[in-house]
Simulated assay, not measured.
Amino acid sequence: MALISQFGDWRSSGMTDKDKKAAIAGAAGTAAGAAGSVGTVAAAGTATGLGATGITSGLAAIGGVVGGGMATGLAITVAAPLVVGGAAYGLYRWLKKD
């Protein structure tokens, strides 16, 4: 919650309780997606780990899945947490319909 409160006082922002909880669910989903992306990059390449060779080969391996290279792997790795966070936000709002 500290991260969310850095962007303003969300407790008095006029958001409903449901919106606040949905935002927290989205933030938690984004954090989980980011952790998953880092783990995937570290494990996917020919040189495992988070050193320069591990990151480079991991991103290239991820990009290679869709026929691209390291830049494509970077785009996929950056987009994945956003997709997971958006899905968590949407799922929470859908499950908690009034």
Rank of each mutant, 00 (worst) to 15 (best):
A27L: 12
L95F: 12
R11G: 04
L50K: 05
A79W: 05
A42N: 14
L50Y: 12
A75L: 09
G85Y: 11
V78L: 14
A61T: 10
A28Y: 08
A25G: 13
Q6I: 11
L82S: 02
A23N: 05
L91Q: 07
T53I: 02
K96G: 01
G33R: 03
A2N: 11
G36E: 07
P81H: 12
T53M: 00
S5A: 15
K20Q: 09
V84G: 04
A61W: 12
V78E: 09
V66W: 05
V84P: 09
L91F: 13
A61M: 08
G90T: 06
G26E: 05
T48I: 10
T72P: 02
K21P: 11
T48F: 07
R93V: 10
Q6C: 03
A32Y: 08
S13G: 07
I62D: 06
G26C: 00
M70Q: 14
A42T: 14
I62F: 01
R93D: 05
G86K: 05
L74M: 11
A47I: 13
G85K: 06
L95P: 00
A87I: 08
L95E: 07
K21C: 09
W10T: 11
I76V: 14
A44D: 01
K18Y: 02
V78A: 15
A80P: 08
L82W: 00
A79T: 07
S5W: 15
I24V: 15
L59G: 03
G49E: 12
T77I: 04
A71C: 02
L3R: 10
Q6F: 10
K96N: 14
G36A: 10
K18I: 07
G33Y: 01
I62K: 01
M70T: 15
L74W: 13
K97Y: 10
K20V: 07
